[in-house]
Design a protein around this nucleic acid. Structure first.
Length: 775
DNA sequence: GAGTTTGAAACT
DNA sequence: CAGTTTCAAACTC
């Protein structure tokens, strides 16, 4: 984990590395210790004589029980000040660094600062707006800093609701208060809180999150830290989660504390809710006794990271926090507006009736965030770097919603320079980005305060993302979506659902439940269906050359070489219309078909495939290479090799739940457009754990091509993709004897063709079996 | 765009 | 497993 940043890190870190605690922790941690890197400007300017070593050294804990990040309180006598003793004057600035170990990716996410202004009674918490924490559930979402670059200031006039008090009492306690919720987020064990659960799951499942647990820590202190860091922490977690299921997350928190103006130790009154004991004093100082602690979060990405709440949607939550707005300081006013904007953007999910349809309907819905093209990725990366944000990662990041989504995308793009193919849901992303980022951008630029500087780190991401979206917006046309009216998009009738993707805005469905906000419902439904029919989400069309040898030779890459898994049952269409799944899939009928009067142009049930080679194989030459990569090798299976993937930089933005569909459009369509059902579900699994980077990429990346050409996927391959949940079906080998990886890259599917069939992939990452550090 | 046809999915 | 119903895509006008 030697990163340039590391060098930058001031003495504090090195100093602490020598500490017994550090050593101890280090010994415990399977993860290579990430030296606390202090990149933050604030930090650099500050000297921390007695920075808790705890903060500087990463601690890895595999405790599943540790649901929350624990931060070591300073064992250093000098630090007690920071503890509950004096929460008043604590300003925390948190910098989060996300790092992909494998690729040395470092992302400086932002900072969270809590300031105690001289006004004494006011406690202002500034949170990075750049990051949006989406809980996916409006109700559950605690307002977290979200919104891009918006300042989030929360003035706690009421002591009870103040951060400090809350911390003192119990970090995990419930907060009924909107303001306090913010702090409580992720702290409590809300069973019904999806968001929280996600977080917890993320942490617990990941098990590699560093725990800052100091024997000496006081609850107050811990709580304080936790609360103050929550946003950042959550963000980090979310980000880490987003960074792909293939990673292991390592979080190192508060790196340092800095007291800029503090003239004395903090004294925690414990009474007035964190208000200064001596308000006048605070006022005298014009306020700003600032304590800044840098939080460095290091994510060691490991495959298998569970991701359940990757949604960063939090407009609703935000509103909660800020909702009361009246008491908010000037800083808040802006944020509020932003929030509103964000909410609108998110609208589709929860504001269906909202007139402001400008909201990006699809925001957050595209779970399988598109991977940016290589060019895009490069551009983004450049931007990021230029702005001081360092991103180097091969890991794919799924795009969250709204602002965060943009970030993710940017990250994703940066991370996946090479991934030029995967791109489902691009449309959605584009749509989303266009709005959120804009709003954010405008606001961000208005930020004058130096403090906010860091908060704008993500700005480049956003801007870039926006521009990209706009550019790409044109590509979204042509996407067809479902039109379900009664199924709620929770049945296989729904193409989206069947394909394992969320419905997005282009869909015309009614009462749709196939959305991230109903993730659990979707997943449960999927499981139910799968229990009934394990292959329900399996590809309907399989490449017979692999699965059904009888159908012919390897050399035949024609549609006829593939067959519908179960066969059709056509009676009147003669298998000459899209009513016929075989025909629709561009494959001939087989003996398994029960069709009557079969005249399938791709091959008749009787075995004749007369038409093959003519209209049935329009662009076979073009597709051949791709097909080969996908299916030519009978024994070829998708190889899951996280490291390789990461190293290759082919991070795929797909959702953890690797549901994927292969587009199997008819070679020719009556109206020249891909059949509505042109894409056939290739693989999907509600519990699919399949790593995004593997099988799916192959398929997805090929989509553009598939749209034009028929593509079938070997039966064996399918399962690999689908099975992530470790379900019984997982028996399928993921690695071929040859360890050959299906390489989608062979197909240079340009971005232009990606639009159709782009859908959200349902995500659900089962807990990762082993979080072996990946270095 | 509305209505019809069709066959898969779901249900019994 | 078969028959029926439901459903949404495909198709027609």
């Amino acid at each position: 984990m030697d990163t340039p940043e590391r060098n930058q890190i001031g003495t504090p870190s090195s100093k602490f590395e020598d500490s017994p605690i550090f050593n101890y922790i280090n010994s415990l941690s399977p993860i290579k210790p990430v030296k606390s890197l202090h990149i933050t400007q604030a930090f650099s300017s500050l000297s921390f004589a007695s920075l808790p070593s705890v903060f500087t050294s990463p601690h890895v804990s595999s405790h599943k029980e540790s649901r929350f990040l624990r931060r070591y309180s300073s064992s250093d006598p000098s630090k007690p000040e920071l503890s509950s003793e004096n929460g008043n004057k604590v300003c925390t600035s948190e910098e989060v660094v996300v790092e992909h170990e494998n690729c040395d990716a470092m992302v400086d996410i932002g900072e969270v600062s809590v300031e105690q202004h001289g006004e004494g009674s006011k406690f202002v918490i500034e949170l990075p707006r750049t990051l949006k924490y989406d809980c996916g559930s409006p109700d559950d979402c605690v307002s977290t800093p979200s919104g891009v670059e918006a300042d989030f200031a929360l003035e706690l006039v009421d002591p009870p609701s103040a951060v400090v008090p809350h911390v003192q009492e119990a970090p995990e306690k419930d907060s009924s208060d909107g303001e306090t919720q913010y702090h409580d987020m992720c702290l409590s064990e809300r069973k019904n809180d999806v968001t929280v659960c996600d977080w917890e799951s993320l942490i617990s499942d990941t098990a590699d999150i560093l725990i800052f647990n100091s024997p000496n820590r006081t609850e107050a202190y811990r709580g304080l830290i936790q609360n103050s860091l929550e946003p950042a922490t959550r963000f980090c977690s979310s980000l880490a989660a987003e960074l792909n299921n293939e990673h292991h997350m390592q979080i190192v928190e508060p790196v340092s504390f800095e007291q800029e103006n503090g003239e004395g130790p903090f004294s925690q009154t414990g009474d007035a809710g964190g208000l200064p004991n001596n308000p006048s004093e605070a006022m005298d100082h014009e306020a700003e006794t600032r304590v800044t602690f840098s939080c460095k979060t290091v994510f060691s990405l490991h495959r298998g990271m569970r991701r359940r709440c990757l949604d960063f949607e939090m407009a609703g939550a935000r509103r909660k926090n800020l909702g009361d707005g009246s008491s908010h300081g000037s800083v808040l006013s802006q944020p509020d507006e932003k929030m509103t904007t964000n909410e609108k953007q998110l609208g589709p999910l929860r504001q269906c009736g909202d007139s402001s349809r400008r909201v990006l309907p699809g925001i957050g819905l595209h779970l399988n965030a598109l991977a940016a093209t290589s060019k895009e990725s490069k551009i983004i990366k450049s931007d990021i770097l230029a702005s001081g944000i360092q991103i180097r990662s091969t890991a794919s990041i799924r795009s969250p919603r709204t602002g965060l989504e943009a970030l993710d995308k940017s990250l994703n793009s940066a991370a996946s320079e090479i991934d030029t193919n995967a791109t489902e849901n691009r449309v959605q992303l584009l749509q989303d980005a266009s709005q959120v980022p804009d709003a954010l951008a405008s606001e961000d630029f208005n930020q004058n305060s130096p403090k906010k500087k860091r908060r704008f780190l993500l700005l480049p991401y956003i801007l870039n993302f926006i521009s990209r979206r706009k550019l790409e917006s044109g590509e979204t046309e042509g996407c067809k979506r479902c039109n379900c009216k009664k199924s709620k998009c929770l049945k296989l009738y729904c193409e989206c659902f069947a394909a394992g993707v969320y419905c997005i805005e282009p869909c015309s469905c009614q009462e749709c439940f196939n959305k991230p906000i109903h993730e659990e419902t979707v997943l449960s439904t999927r499981k139910q269906i799968e229990s009934r029919n394990p292959l329900a989400f399996a590809p309907k069309v399989i490449r017979s050359s692999d699965a059904v040898p009888e159908f012919g030779d390897e050399s035949s890459k024609t549609p006829a070489s593939a067959r519908h898994k179960r066969g059709c049952n056509c009676k009147k269409s003669s298998c000459l219309k899209k009513y016929c799944e075989c025909y629709q899939g561009g494959v001939g009928c087989s003996i398994s078909c029960r069709c009557e009067g079969c005249k399938n142009a791709f091959g008749r049930k009787d075995g004749s495939s007369a038409l093959i080679g003519t209209e049935a194989e329009p662009d076979e030459e073009e597709t051949e290479a791709c097909e080969k990569s996908l299916a030519d090798k009978p024994s070829q299976k998708i190889e899951i090799h996280n490291n390789e993937e990461q190293n290759s930089g082919s991070a795929h933005p797909m959702t953890p739940l690797r549901m994927s569909r292969a587009l199997v459009p008819l070679p020719f369509s009556s109206n020249g457009k891909p059949p509505r059902s042109s894409f056939i579900t290739v693989a999907s699994s509600s519990s699919g754990l399949y790593s995004q980077k593997h099988a799916k990429p192959s398929i997805l990346r090929s989509q553009p091509k598939f749209e034009k050409h028929m593509q079938t996927i070997p039966d064996d391959e399918m399962p690999v993709i689908l099975r992530g949940d470790g379900s019984p079906s997982t028996g399928i080998k993921t690695v071929s004897p040859n360890s050959k990886r299906i390489s989608p890259p062979h197909c240079h599917f340009g971005s232009p063709g990606r639009r159709s069939g782009r859908k959200l992939i349902l995500q659900s990452i089962p807990s990762f079996p082993s979080l072996t550090p990946q270095h």
